[in-house]
Amino acid sequence: MSMTTTAAYGERKALPALRPRRIPEHWWGYVLLAPAVALVVGIILYPVAYSFWISFHAKHAYMPIQNWVGLDNYIFFLTDYDGFWRSLWLGTIYAFGTVTLQIVVGVAAALVLNETFIGRGFVRGLTLFPYMLPTIVVVILMRWLFNDSIGVVKYLLESTIVTRAIVWFAPETIMVTMILVSTWTFFPFVVIGTLARMQTIDPELYAAAKVDGAGILRRLWHVTLPQIRSVLFVVVLLRFMFMFTKFDVIWLFAGAGGLGSYVRTLPIYTFVKSFGELQVGMGAALSTIMFMMLAAFVALYFRLFKRDENL
């Protein structure tokens, strides 16, 4: 096929003939998608599938030992009361404890930061500070603040509010300490999400509620919370998944043995199995179980709370 064009002011000039496309038009979609698909397959699907495959083996972490054991790894955990079930219980306490506190503190902070006051921009920036700190810095800082011998927080509490000495790093208190530290570190995530939504709530809703005689608490309950519900739905889901699989804070704070045995959540237990006992097959089985648990949790969560089509 040849094409011609007409110059606005001049002679007609022939353009070179275009070759027909060698790749059919509809194939271009696949070609352009290919890099993204390759990335997803290579970076996400393959490791997950490999981990699933490994979970059916007795595989050593570095020795060339890999034997098929079928479902043995999974069956082992069914009766592993002091290991798996205890870790699941501790992980659930940690996840629910931190998520609940993060939501309460995060929403409360967002409500304050949504008001107008002098220095609001600075306070907003300051609120995000814990989330910006590297985990290792948080851990070192908190270990120092709560230290039984030289801790500033411990000293201030015991010299003002608390009447008896609290040992923050003892077996009976370490879970509470971990929940408090994790709440402090991660509540800004809730603030960011909810504050952004609060800023878009139509002021007329509050005006109408005021006209109807609603006080602060009723406006919070009947206007603010329903309006931020969709954001909270996502934030709670994400925070639960993040905290249930949280490794770094607990590991750096307490490790696996000694004090760590009182906060040995499933990710820590998985690490111990994979890199402590060097049983990678067991670790892979635990990862798969965690993945399935989270998938079940998400399904249940959606079923229970996704009533509004806006969610």
């Binding site: 002091d82 077996p171 696996a256 043995g257 000694g258 760590g260 045995s261 040995r264 111990v272 890199f275 402590g276 006992e277 060097l278 049983q279």
Partner: peptide, 30 residues
Amino acid sequence: IAEIAGSTILVDMVTDVTKNGKTPMEAATK
């Protein structure tokens, strides 16, 4: 030895006795 050292078996045995109220025999048996 590496696997025993990397596991938490011995550590848990000690904390079971020192902090969890188990007798040495109970902790050691486990």
